[in-house]
Simulated scan of single mutants.
Amino acid sequence: MNRTKNLYIVLIFSFITALGFSLYFYNHVQEYDEKIAKMKALPSLPQYHIALIGEEKDHDYWRLVGEGAKEAEVIYDTFVEYEGPKRSNPEEQLKLLDMAIQSNVDGIIVQALNENFKVLINEAENKGIPVVTIDTDAPDSMRETYIGTDNYLAGQLAGEALLEDTTGEVNVGVVTGSFQNKHHQLRVEGFKDVIKKEDRIKIVAIEESNILRVESEDKAYQLLNDHKNITAFYGTSSYDGIGIVAAAKSLDRLEDLYVIGFDTLDENIELLKNEELNVVIGQQPFQMGYDSIGIMLDIIKGKTVEDIYYTEVSILRKSDLTASNNKGGADD
């Protein structure tokens, strides 16, 4: 009898143990199935990783370039890693470019501010990483293509506006964002080549703002004090026009001046509406960023691309303003 009782106890214990293991494994299988279902529900990882390196990450202009690229990112199954210095710093940009090369990304879109970028662009290309220059070109490098403003043309348009809108002798003060950066050099060069057609217009001095609002105001103030005969100003970066107007106001000289600014920054548009700026040269940074992604993917996939893709540049006066402002943005 005791033997039978013990056998029943063993069988019951075995049954309970087996049931426990069954429930345990059932629960784990359910959890595993749930995890698999969740993973399947997640979007697939983007096929391509592209690095976008701008001059100044949080600048209005470069923010629009980044927004354009990010909008294209969704369409083209691509992850765009947008980076840039907090303030304009070519050396930091070069470090970011080197990091992108070492990370072996699928493609690099970069502003090539000076000749130092050529070495790293060529290094990337030799490693099989295609490079597209944006906003500022490096035509003598191995880069695949350039997308952005024709900066020489932008300077010419500024010069043509001055010729068209003024009469008699005009003495011009120029405040440029940078003496070293190629795109600012081209904007000054294009401007000079147009105004030299008429002897009545002369540049009396050129100063550098280092792409800083406070310096553009300081340099304009200095120019107005040192050259009492200045009757016009040309600023080649987005903050230069703002600084010029502020300096002229402080000296009660604005009524006497013709002022050309750069880029459709909100503040510049307000100054244009108030007739404190006479002309704004407009660019298309959002379009640059958006188009650069599609062009880069064409390159990655072995398609033929053009050597240069110029985006629109225009002369904007108060009469050209409309209720619907495009995504023109502000440049560096």
Score class of each variant (00 low, 15 high):
residue 110 V to K: 11
residue 140 D to G: 08
residue 186 L to T: 00
residue 133 T to S: 10
residue 98 D to M: 12
residue 119 V to H: 08
residue 204 V to C: 10
residue 129 I to E: 01
residue 153 L to H: 12
residue 206 I to S: 00
residue 98 D to Y: 15
residue 130 P to C: 06
residue 158 A to K: 01
residue 157 L to N: 05
residue 150 D to H: 06
residue 176 T to V: 13
residue 112 A to S: 05
residue 160 E to I: 07
residue 121 I to D: 04
residue 210 N to I: 00
residue 142 M to I: 01
residue 207 E to D: 15
residue 133 T to Y: 06
residue 178 S to H: 12
residue 91 E to P: 08
residue 119 V to K: 15
residue 190 G to R: 06
residue 150 D to R: 03
residue 122 N to W: 00
residue 168 G to F: 05
residue 124 A to D: 02
residue 183 H to I: 10
residue 192 K to V: 13
residue 114 N to Q: 11
residue 187 R to P: 12
residue 153 L to G: 01
residue 103 S to V: 02
residue 209 S to R: 04
residue 124 A to W: 02
residue 160 E to V: 09
residue 117 F to P: 10
residue 122 N to K: 08
residue 168 G to D: 12
residue 184 H to I: 02
residue 145 T to Q: 06
residue 94 L to I: 14
residue 137 D to Y: 03
residue 191 F to E: 07
residue 197 K to V: 00
residue 171 N to A: 10
residue 125 E to T: 04
residue 137 D to A: 10
residue 156 Q to A: 06
residue 111 Q to Y: 09
residue 192 K to F: 08
residue 199 D to M: 09
residue 103 S to N: 15
residue 169 E to T: 13
residue 198 E to M: 09
residue 134 I to W: 05
residue 122 N to Y: 02
residue 186 L to R: 11
residue 131 V to N: 01
residue 96 L to G: 03
residue 196 K to P: 05
residue 187 R to N: 04
residue 179 F to N: 12
residue 212 L to E: 14
residue 137 D to H: 02
residue 98 D to W: 12
residue 151 N to C: 00
residue 130 P to A: 05
residue 114 N to M: 05
residue 176 T to W: 10
residue 210 N to E: 15
residue 161 A to L: 07
residue 128 G to I: 03
residue 176 T to E: 13
residue 164 E to W: 12
residue 126 N to P: 07
residue 93 Q to T: 13
residue 138 A to L: 04
residue 156 Q to R: 14
residue 184 H to N: 10
residue 177 G to L: 07
residue 190 G to T: 03
residue 116 N to L: 06
residue 124 A to S: 06
residue 104 N to C: 05
residue 95 K to L: 07
residue 172 V to L: 15
residue 166 T to H: 06
residue 161 A to D: 00
residue 156 Q to G: 06
residue 93 Q to Y: 04
residue 138 A to N: 08
residue 209 S to Q: 05
residue 126 N to C: 03
residue 127 K to Q: 12
residue 145 T to Y: 06
residue 174 V to A: 11
residue 126 N to T: 10
residue 165 D to F: 07
residue 196 K to N: 04
residue 102 Q to C: 09
residue 158 A to W: 03
residue 111 Q to T: 15
residue 110 V to C: 01
residue 128 G to K: 11
residue 147 I to S: 03
residue 130 P to D: 00
residue 199 D to G: 00
residue 210 N to S: 13
residue 99 M to T: 12
residue 127 K to H: 11
residue 208 E to M: 14
residue 129 I to Y: 02
residue 93 Q to M: 15
residue 167 T to Y: 07
residue 163 L to D: 02
residue 146 Y to P: 02
residue 110 V to S: 05
residue 189 E to S: 04
residue 129 I to F: 01
residue 162 L to M: 14
residue 177 G to P: 01
residue 148 G to K: 09
residue 133 T to W: 07
residue 157 L to P: 11
residue 122 N to T: 07
residue 135 D to R: 01
residue 131 V to A: 00
residue 120 L to V: 01
residue 153 L to Y: 12
residue 112 A to Q: 03
residue 132 V to N: 01
residue 95 K to C: 03
residue 155 G to D: 07
residue 141 S to P: 08
residue 180 Q to D: 14
residue 113 L to W: 09
residue 193 D to A: 14
residue 131 V to Y: 09
residue 144 E to K: 15
residue 187 R to G: 05
residue 133 T to N: 09
residue 178 S to D: 11
residue 170 V to C: 02
residue 155 G to V: 07
residue 124 A to L: 10
residue 200 R to Q: 08
residue 165 D to P: 09
residue 131 V to C: 02
residue 110 V to M: 03
residue 195 I to S: 12
residue 167 T to I: 02
residue 175 V to A: 14
residue 132 V to C: 01
residue 202 K to H: 11
residue 109 I to R: 08
